[in-house]
């Protein structure tokens, strides 16, 4: 419910602090505003009780005479009501979530270091095939090219052990027949490609991708 703009005058009126004009204006107002009148009667009861029983109520009040030396934390906390603090906390959380989401979306690509004009360290090698499941023993392994003069070393693993490795300047390699024969149907293997600069410096490593050779139908 929205508060009446005259509500702020209640205390001042009850404690005889209003000027004559303001007092007359407020008196006419509460003859027309039940809400203000009700609140004023309640406040009047409170003030009457305090005036009448104040000595008894406040006899043990320790820090009421001296200027209160609140701590800095207390002053900060007192600046807003608990409800306002809660709103601030919720708003701050929302802003933080939005900022972090934005940062994630604006995340720059992996840093790249130029070794020379042709080789770029930090580029990503994407393996094309084989991946996941294949119907027959793959004869060719293919990945995305990384620069013009990079050299690639392919590794095929069987259960973590290097089964075969070979270096090439192409972005594919044909598996030799003798190695093909070692790959069995129904088994899982993995492979990985590492890229090197012409000087032999490692510039990128692909993720290790697993593939399974299905049993023939």
């Amino acid at each position: 419910m929205r508060n009446c703009k005259f509500e702020g005058n209640i205390d001042e009126y009850l404690m005889n602090r209003l000027t004559d004009d303001k007092k007359n204006e407020f008196e006419e107002h509460y003859f027309n505003c039940s809400s203000c009148f009700e609140k004023m009667v309640e406040r009047d009861e409170l003030i009457t009780a305090i005036k009448y029983k104040g000595q008894e109520i406040f006899k043990d009040e320790p820090a009421t005479e001296a200027v209160k030396g609140e701590t800095s934390w207390g002053k900060i906390m007192a600046f807003l009501t608990p409800k306002q603090w809660a709103t601030v906390a919720v708003s701050a959380t929302l802003i933080a979530v939005l900022v972090f989401s934005g940062l994630l979306m604006l995340k720059p690509p992996s840093p790249q270091f130029f070794i020379n004009e042709d080789a770029v360290r930090g580029g990503k090698i994407t393996l094309i095939s084989p991946i996941f499941e294949v119907q027959t023993v793959p004869s060719q392994f293919e990945w995305q090219r990384l620069g013009e003069n990079a050299e690639y070393r392919i590794y095929i693993y069987d259960n973590g052990d290097t089964l075969w490795q070979k270096t090439t300047k192409d972005n594919f390699i044909v598996l030799p027949e003798n190695i093909k024969k070692t790959l069995a149907s129904g088994e899982k293997y993995s492979w990985q490609v590492k890229a090197f600069s012409p000087e032999g410096a490692l510039i990128s490593v692909s993720s290790r991708v697993q593939f399974k050779i299905n049993h023939p139908e």
């Binding site: 205390d11 404690m15 409170l46 003030i47 305090i50 104040g54």
Partner: peptide, 14 residues
């Protein structure tokens, strides 16, 4: 006490 002291200063001590 934090509410009581406000009532004390504002209404009792005026």
């Amino acid at each position: 006490p934090k509410y009581r002291e406000v009532l004390y200063l504002y209404y009792y001590k005026e």
